[in-house]
Nucleic acid binder design. Structure first.
Lengths: 364, 364
DNA sequence: CCGTATTTGTTCGTATGTATT
DNA sequence: CAATACATACGAACAAATACG
């Protein structure tokens, strides 16, 4: 077999039909074209068509009636009792993930549900593949941390498939603009960063660098808070003080950009960072450059993670209610599972963060 | 079709083979004649033979191997194809858990398996409940971090149920003595602690405190390594220098015990800790007591976690191959899933740890 | 009720691809 | 490398169930 996709013809047809069903273009009870018609349309032999169909019959997507035709089966029957909830995260890291999943697990375990864990590594295609996989596994609901949520989601059709199959889902941390009217448990990222930058400005700092993640909505919103706080204090917004990084260059870009600024002699009073990881890296960079925190430069983190207390100079940061967020998401989802009309009642919780003042900021 | 039984040829062959298996004339592992051979013998086309075989493959009576042949499957219990693997951990914490699960996930995702995650909070009854739950959910295998593995397991019957149901499982980090001949991927805890204490002794320390967890087998084994290293250096074993703690008092007991020793004026040269978390706590205690590390007292950790590098004085510790361990466990489990006779071939991997020398130990 | 067209079900033959031994 | 075994694919014929005029 030497097809472009190096995939068997019958498998391609199988996937095609399966997709039509998942995407709702084929609804339960709908008749598919006859074997002969398909064979002619797709210029393959009837035998090959039959092979594809027989697999889908075996998997429960189709059923055949002798002399009548082949039809799409209603697969929603056993869905409601699996007592499994899918959790799709972007990263399984030491950072805030463990506490969030702890919160989710505590609520789900109490209600005798299990977590099916998937992580995308912030890869949009994996997100699509995993939603499809979980559709197959009959989960009763999903908790999803969106992948690259600042970008337009190309996986919209998969979310629509979830809607059609009556599988509720809750977004955490971020959401897609196209799916704004879905349930979501998020932090008020704008307000959080506003608090941090406002605090820096009140301490007398004027040249405040902002470091933000460009590819998720949290980064975009935190940047908004940064700009708003500057405006309040009549500090002109200078794009030269704003550093944007992406998932792919997260380990190099922020440090490199700050280093360039400082060695170019640009005045820097303070640096407000996208999160504690960045702040920790910036702290180490400044130390290596011979600058002391907070005497020479103040820095703020975000998330109130273990890093903010483990850092030699404890970081002033913005509280992220990690476990609580997981708990709320799980509770909201279970309510949606019980509610037949959940699509009309999306739940949006925007958690107000608070500033945690520690040792990494000083008066100017 | 006008056969005597008015039955399709392929159905007859199917029933015939199925009967041979049920009557025990075809035993698990036996090879059936090749498709061509059967076609010739029974004077039917190879296609018809294939149809019969494909049904039996689907029903789980046979399996085919490309290029080799078609074999009889061990079918005393219906081996499902849920493509789910249960993972039972003791804690979902920031500590080493995320990296271990990352390793597990990377291998399972590659093989299109999903993780069903359960955490016991080190509660033996929850362990039992979750094994039972996962039996219900048709997982194909389990990766289990044993709960309180130093104690005699009262959940033996649940593990026996797994055996009876042909659901393979792999222990990680520890194991139960009663289930010693099951697959297990563990660290050589004794050797690891031996290296650490040996290193301390070679630096000239004699009064070496050891802090160990009493309720898991890792603690017991690490204690053995501690004792062996002392013996090698002719340092008498003094129970007064050994601190045992349990899951429940892990946050208070070690610090309290060390504090008591020091305020009682007992000479302490070095402290070798059960893990980096304990070492980190002890570091903070010593700092608060005005002792400096490593000048006044040397300390060692265990696990090479983020804590050992985030600690203001970077900890000398023992390397724990967190991701690798997860990967190995997942690979071994998948091999067992494919092996009908996995119970006779337990895989035991004991990973040799190595000492990571950083800044928390000094010559006496 | 009959006949015809359509649709799925069964069977055969043939050819070629690919993995294993 | 050759032989063997399973995998994919095409084409053809006929059987059996159904739909419809």
């Amino acid at each position: 077999m030497h097809n472009e996709e190096s995939q068997a013809k019958y498998l391609k047809l199988k996937e095609y039909i399966k997709n039509e069903i998942l995407m709702g273009r084929l609804k339960p009870g709908d008749q598919i074209p006859s074997e002969n018609a398909l064979a002619q349309m797709l210029s393959m032999s009837r035998n090959t068509v039959r092979k594809a169909i027989s697999i889908l019959v075996n998997e429960g997507y189709l059923y055949t009636e002798h002399g009548r035709g082949t039809y799409c089966r209603d697969r929603n029957i056993n869905r409601k009792t699996s007592r499994n909830i899918g959790v799709i995260t972007t990263y399984i890291s030491e950072y805030i993930f463990p506490k969030v999943i702890q919160g989710i697990d505590s609520v789900l375990a109490q209600n005798k549900y299990s977590i099916i864990l998937k992580n995308t590594g912030n890869d949009v295609e994996k997100e699509a593949a995993y939603i499809e996989e979980l559709l197959d596994k009959d989960v009763e609901g999903l908790i999803i941390e969106p992948t690259k949520s600042a970008l337009f989601s190309c996986n919209l059709k998969y979310y629509e498939a979830l809607d059609r199959n009556n599988i509720p889902y809750v977004f955490i941390h971020g959401y897609y603009q196209q799916l704004e009217n879905r349930s979501q448990i998020i932090l008020d990222d704008e307000d959080g960063m506003y608090c941090a930058v406002n605090y820096l400005a009140e301490l007398g700092h004027r040249n405040i660098v902002g470091i933000f993640k460009a590819d998720d909505i949290q980064g975009v919103n935190r940047h908004k808070g940064y700009a708003r706080a500057l405006a309040k204090h009549d500090i002109p917004y200078d794009p030269g003080y704003v550093i944007w990084f992406h998932t792919e260059d997260r380990l190099t870009k922020p440090s490199y950009a700050v280093k360039s600024m400082i060695s170019a002699g640009k005045p820097v009073d303070a640096i407000s960072c996208y999160n504690d990881q960045i702040a920790f890296n910036i702290y180490e960079l400044l130390r290596d450059l011979g600058k002391s925190v907070p005497e020479d430069i103040s820095i703020t983190g975000f998330d109130d993670s273990y890093l903010s207390v483990n850092c030699p100079v404890k970081l002033t940061t913005v509280r992220h209610p990690k476990e609580e967020l997981g708990e709320i998401a799980a509770k909201v989802l279970l309510d949606m599972v019980a509610d037949n009309d959940y699509l009309s009642n999306p739940v949006k919780k925007i958690i107000k963060p608070e500033l945690i003042i520690r040792d990494s900021c000083a008066k100017r």
